[in-house]
Design a protein around this nucleic acid. Structure first.
Lengths: 163, 163
DNA sequence: AGCAATAATGTTATAAAGTAACATTTTTTC
DNA sequence: GAAAAAATGTTACTTTATAACATTATTGCT
């Protein structure tokens, strides 16, 4: 049993998923982390983080831009990309390179790049932090004399809700 | 000891790496595989595959396009992308989504998505097919009720040649 | 408080990566 | 050798991301 399995609901949001709480908890934790670090979670940054968290489907930068623009904020691509750069640095969001899209980080403050399960049917993505996968990757790379900096693990398939 | 370790040289090309042979072997194997499958490895496709193999650094589509253009071939983006689509379908190249770039497949004809070690220093990439990593990923996904279709594993760091 | 330094955001323009749609050519099949 | 199918050529465009510089807001100092 790994730590992901301990959560009361699965890694994918189920029918009983309280999304409002999920978003507000993520924002509260982000605010706390930034305060501790002396990083500035400005209104724009908080809003972009909230937009990212508004669903569990990875969201493209231009989709976020459209939301901001619809709210009347002055917004151009650099607005969003710079904000995402900050959120990535703080470990508050992840970028899924196989989708060119972004999702909220489930465990901000923890180390490791995580792994992602991406459902081809509903588009939801779930973050895992599986020690077994991490170890297998580290072991394999190390066995070839490779010094790991970070890694990208994106697993595409069908989620339990969609089966 | 896994199957990658059996090779006489490491997964990264070393000082004794015979690159001419490496490229011609890849082309010969591609030709054989396509013949067996009734797939057409046309001159354009063979040339693009050769270009991909000309180094062990992942190459962008537009870089390939530039090579083709420099050779006097009529070439526009769809030329390259369609060719790459064929080569990907045949499992002759891989796309590294963290780089938006392509590398030749070391084990065409074998199943599995493979894993990639990407050196931040020299830019070379090495393909692994580590059973331990594959199993850890499958086990983790399965434990969460997720049905795996394919996966992307891209490990970024420093290769043994660059340390 | 007032001012300089720094950080954040706004703005314009452009680069880089990828695809849609249709025309032409080549290859296969009968 | 003609029809069908596959491959390639061509034009135009969409999506994703960044460079460069202007402006505004915040912070730290005296």
């Amino acid at each position: 049993m790994n730590e992901d399995s301990r959560s009361p609901e699965g890694v994918f949001p189920g029918r009983d998923h309280d999304h409002l709480h999920c978003v507000s908890a993520a924002l509260a934790q982000a605010a706390r982390l930034c305060r501790e670090r002396g990083a500035r979670l400005t209104p724009l940054r908080a809003r972009v983080l909230e937009i990212v968290w508004q669903s569990h489907k990875p969201l493209g930068a231009y989709d976020m831009l459209a939301v901001l623009a619809a709210e009347g904020r002055s917004a151009a691509p650099p607005t969003v990309y710079r904000t995402l750069e900050f959120l990535l640095e703080q470990g508050l969001v992840h970028r899924l390179s196989s989708l060119n899209a972004f999702v909220g980080c489930k465990r901000p403050g923890h180390t490791g790049s995580g792994q992602f399960l991406i459902c081809e049917s509903c588009g939801n993505a779930a973050e895992l932090n599986d020690g077994g996968v991490e170890r297998a990757i580290t072991r394999s790379a190390t066995a070839h004399g490779f010094d790991v900096d970070r890694h990208t693990v994106e697993i595409t398939g069908i989620c339990p809700e969609c089966r």
